[in-house]
Nucleic acid binder design. Structure first.
Lengths: 143, 143
DNA sequence: CCACTTGTTTTGAATTACTCAAAACTACTG
DNA sequence: CAGTAGTTTTGAGTAATTCAAAACAAGTGG
């Protein structure tokens, strides 16, 4: 079967292997997943896949621009399929949950620093930190 | 000798040990250092200090609010003494060099997201990515 | 000034997330 | 359908950090 994912992979210069398609499908259904979550998701269909292969696939897909990699402080690297806009993230400072935040500007860099120290700015990455709804609900029990 | 650093430590509820004072001094002279750089800096005076102790001290100082920890994607955790303002960072996407960027607003969160997904926002962390002056100079040789 | 107690550092081992390399394999080409 | 280049597997290795128990030192009270 020739799917959209197959052709996306091929037009990026990558072979459309079952593993890669499965990873893309997994990330379509669960955004902001780390390598281990992706492994668990695709293990249902491809039980022979190793965590190293998942890392390998995720690195290839990231390099090809088919997925985006984010690394919030304190978490393992997370991957997402939303790559065509310049959006940002809210991370729960207690449990690490992640949600998307639309960028007001829509393209990189959405902000320009006041003092660049001679750097040639390419992008601005914004990470909001706060409490997710669940952790707010449990806020009375622990701090 | 009773220094400013001593009293800063004590008023944070921490004992003013030589190791902690040395770490604070090191971070005063070299901002954005990782644990290993701090270890090298204090090894001149305290050669018996282990990397584990440095991690321990850095964690204590971070918890006490005396230093700030940043974790740019792809780098080890970096520590800095500038904690009283809400400033941001430029990271070189090639060599990982870090410089400070003043926050226009000056207090957290300097930005407010459009859609919060129910999160209670506490801070906004902005990381600019670009090429540092050195890497711009070498830009013709490699990409 | 000395001993005590608690907080701190050392020592040594373990863990996590990830990378590297060679062998086995499979998607696409002709 | 066979060949080859690109992929995945298998297995080992690394870097940064954390954990735990024993050794030690800072600040306190005598």
């Amino acid at each position: 079967m020739e799917t959209t994912l197959d052709s996306a992979l091929r037009s990026a210069g990558l072979k459309a292997t079952t593993g890669r398609v499965a990873v893309l499908e997994a990330l379509d259904s669960m955004a902001h997943s780390d390598a281990e979550q992706v492994l668990r998701a695709i293990s249902r269909d491809l039980p022979k896949t190793s965590i190293q292969s998942v890392h390998n696939i995720l690195a290839d897909l990231t390099a090809a621009g088919l997925i985006r990699r984010i690394e919030p402080a304190g978490s393992a690297a997370l991957y997402e399929r939303r790559i065509d806009d310049n959006h940002h993230h809210v991370v729960c400072s207690r449990c690490g949950a992640v949600a998307d935040v639309d960028c007001v500007v829509g393209h990189a860099p959405c902000l320009t620093p006041s003092t660049t120290s001679g750097f040639a700015i390419q992008t601005a990455e914004v990470t909001f930190w706060g409490l997710c709804p669940d952790c707010q609900a449990n806020d009375t029990t622990a701090e």
